[in-house]
Design a protein around this nucleic acid. Structure first.
Length: 310
DNA sequence: TCACAATGAACAA
DNA sequence: TGTTCCTTGTGAC
């Protein structure tokens, strides 16, 4: 996934292309046929992200909640250039108009494709949202459901603060309170969406490294100033991820290195998926351990044994 | 062709 | 703690 930054980008893109428009909804795959029928033809009134959850508010108090899970993705295709003309039957009969695709999910890409618009669904499309100029295909989500406002509210109520929504001191206080009230390992707690929204397996490992924290240390033993730093760091990383579409967590790069890392995934991280490779700071081999059923990467020197006994 | 991993989380026991 | 679900791309054969 699609960690928190991806979902905020999707919400922003949907506001850009779908807001206040009547949307055709369908489920080419069939597994969301009833839900799609409930909303099809109605106007999208709001599109919002909270952590990893996307909420699409349609008329008549119908809210579609989408959670991409570990490999869900949206494929968004828009007509380019003379979009209105290109979409007309007359132009279509002349040949395929040019479409632009943008995928937002486990990997983002954009490319041009010479194919008719709207393109035929490829693969298992759970939900297709469509106007005359834009098609968005959803594949592989963990959750895609139509909610009442009450049901949506109860989902939101179970989520920890999101730095993009809970700005200022309130979000920070809520984060500090929720983290410090549990003795579970900080590496587990950062992944818990009831504690803080939007952090996934990549950001978890990278944030812990950036603060030279032992992932196994009980959260309740961390000083408040460390927790404040963690919150501020997550806020900055999330904002940066939303802006660039990339999880670039290294803060040891010059501008050329940063530019390269935006292109090359292997250059983006301190420890994530770098098991056995030398730590970028101390050269010790990065280790991997399972934590909260997920692969956790860390530097045993920087984060555990090498730390001053503070 | 096939096994497997992947940025996630709900559920059972 | 372990199992299950969702889908696709990759890399080994």
């Amino acid at each position: 996934m699609p960690e928190g930054h991806t979902v905020h980008r999707i919400a922003a893109l949907f506001r850009e292309v779908f807001l206040n428009q009547s949307i055709l909804a369908s489920s080419p795959q069939g597994r969301f046929r009833d839900g799609a029928a409930l909303i099809s033809g109605s106007v999208l009134e709001r599109a919002e992200a909270r952590g990893k959850q996307l909420f699409l508010h349609f008329e008549s108090d119908r809210i579609v909640r989408v959670h991409l899970g570990i490999y869900g993705a949206w494929d968004v295709m828009t007509l380019q250039g003379d979009s209105v003309r290109a979409g007309s039957a007359q132009t279509l009969s002349l040949g395929a108009p040019r479409a632009s695709r943008r995928r937002l999910g486990e990997r983002e890409e954009s490319f041009d494709a010479d194919e008719p618009f709207p393109p035929a669904p490829r693969g298992a499309v759970r939900l297709r949202l469509e106007t005359s100029e834009v098609v968005a295909d959803l594949r592989g989500p963990t959750a895609c459901e139509v909610h009442t406002p009450e049901e949506a509210a109860s989902v939101v109520a179970r989520l920890g603060p999101d730095p993009l929504l809970d700005t200022g001191i309130r979000g920070q206080r809520e984060f500090v309170k929720r983290v410090s009230s549990t003795s579970r390992p900080i590496g587990v707690v950062l992944m818990d969406q009831a504690v803080v929204s939007g952090i996934g397996n990549v950001y978890r490992a990278e944030i812990l490294f950036r603060h030279l924290l032992d992932p196994f240390r009980p959260a309740s033993t961390l000083p408040e100033e460390v927790l404040v730093d963690l919150w501020k760091d997550w806020s900055g990383l999330l904002a940066d991820g939303v802006k660039t579409g990339v999880m670039l967590t290294r803060n040891d790069l010059d501008s050329a290195g940063r530019k390269r890392a935006l292109r090359v995934a292997k250059d983006r991280y301190f420890v994530y998926k770098r098991e056995g490779l030398p730590c970028r700071v101390c050269g010790t081999h990065v280790q991997m351990a399972l934590m909260a059923t997920r692969k956790l990467y860390f530097c045993p020197q920087c984060q555990i044994s090498g730390k001053a006994s503070s």
